[in-house]
Design a binder for these strands. Structure first.
Lengths: 253, 253
DNA sequence: TAGTGGTCTAGACCACTTA
DNA sequence: AAGTGGTCTAGACCACTAC
């Protein structure tokens, strides 16, 4: 089973063999792989070598390792699609934030915790919001949950001058959310820009989002601009990549 | 330095300590971390324990481990932004594919290899292209390089009926690319839909894209629709997440 | 030659689950 | 009690780099 003269590390050979069996369907999603003891016998290697092989699979998100249970082929997670239409005024008129509407559509019981604070703008914030570094910024720190589990983190920042005296500085922004309050205050939103990427989570994100090893996060930075081009809000979102996809749609040209 | 009664594994404590020092700037990007031997002395643990700590950092994409050299703080990669405007007819008129234009703008020497083949549609392809499973599909498999390095993979599929007799079935599609040929054949593109997510790469992708451990890939599936809503093309793209971000922009409402 | 990381082994103790 | 994965150690040999 193992070629010790191939130059390829034995634990990598074992990992590849298991990977192949998984993608060939020999081990179905949710199914248990052989235990460490069994793999030791099958491949004739030491325990640490087997463990290294399994760890490779784990850090690639192929399997879940459950203590005292075994190693299981990771079943695909339920995917939530976030479409840009979630930001339309029509959706806002329905009196629900984008997140609540999405979650309910998926049959989840959603909830959010919000913390509001005020900060001087750091360099990046100042640049994206086109304000002076150090200028006061209203920060809304949100944790979104579905059925009690944290599924999304969002940090929204607005120049304080646009939020003073509005419900944006309250925990509860009221119907239609912060964007509705901005428009009421005369700041009509002209366009949105979203910038998307992915990376491995920080330890903190891993804990908060309860991410299994080998799961990246999607990061989305949205900036809402007023009709005259002034940045009104920037929103840094962090989503588990195994549960979210982002959909964008536009007319040719 | 290490609390052996905290319940937290020693190698995790060491990983966290190193992580903290890195984010505190104590080790700058590109800088070398202490060698295994030094870490063994510093923390008073065995070699395997040190190695496990370093491996945690590596699989989170925090450090690069170079054999015979040492462990280095991973410097941020140069980011390429892909904007939806790359698909405009105006860009096409400039006689360059989206990739070539992007790469040149970044100062790279771009090149692509293309393989064209014909296949029966699998289930997913059939659904996305709204054709019968098994119907013939033209597949364009592209590998994009910048300065000789593979930086992007793309697999484009079109119902064969739309490509027969056009340069889309050739390796070189000619000026403006496949979309220009489609429009010449009377299939005017009406809108695009892109669906974005992220995951860890497969072994093959890791090899092709020369991805360091701990780097996810962005996956983008784009579907181009004709003005009447008929799907013309689907394009599965795979991008290294440390080098690409995707930008979308749209008017409110 | 010394220093670096890569691999592998053998054996130990632990905590928790399942039967 | 048996089985599972989690952690840690001590020591071995390797390949390559840098001096």
């Amino acid at each position: 089973m193992v070629d010790r003269s191939s130059g390829v590390a034995v634990h990598r050979q074992i990992a590849t063999a298991l990977r192949d069996k998984i993608s060939a369907g020999e081990f179905a999603p949710g199914e248990k792989l052989p235990s460490e003891t069994q793999l030791i016998e099958t491949y004739g290697v030491s325990r640490e070598t087997v463990r290294k092989a399994v760890q490779l699979l784990e850090s690639d998100g192929v399997v879940n390792v459950l203590q005292e249970k075994g190693v299981f082929v990771r079943p695909p997670a339920a995917i939530t699609r976030l479409a840009r239409s979630r930001l339309s005024r029509a959706a806002r008129a329905k009196n629900e934030g984008a997140f609540l509407a999405d979650a309910k559509a998926q049959g989840f019981t959603p909830s959010t915790s919000v913390r509001v604070r005020f900060e001087p703008a750091d360099e990046r914030t100042a640049e994206l919001l086109a304000i002076e570094p150090g200028a006061e910024v209203t920060v809304r720190d949100r944790v979104m949950r579905a059925n009690g589990l944290v599924v999304q983190l969002a940090v929204s920042r607005l120049p304080r001058e646009f939020t003073r005296g509005t419900a944006i500085e309250e925990v509860n922004t009221g119907p239609g959310g912060a964007y509705a309050r901005l428009e009421e205050a005369g700041h009509e939103i002209g366009r949105y820009v979203e910038d998307t990427g992915a990376r491995m989570p920080t330890d903190e994100e891993r804990t908060q989002l309860q991410l299994p090893p080998g799961t990246p996060v999607l990061t989305v930075t949205r900036i809402a601009y007023r009709e005259d081009g002034t940045p009104l809000e920037m929103n840094d979102m962090t989503l588990p990549a195994d549960r979210y996809r982002l959909t964008y749609e536009w007319a040719a040209d």
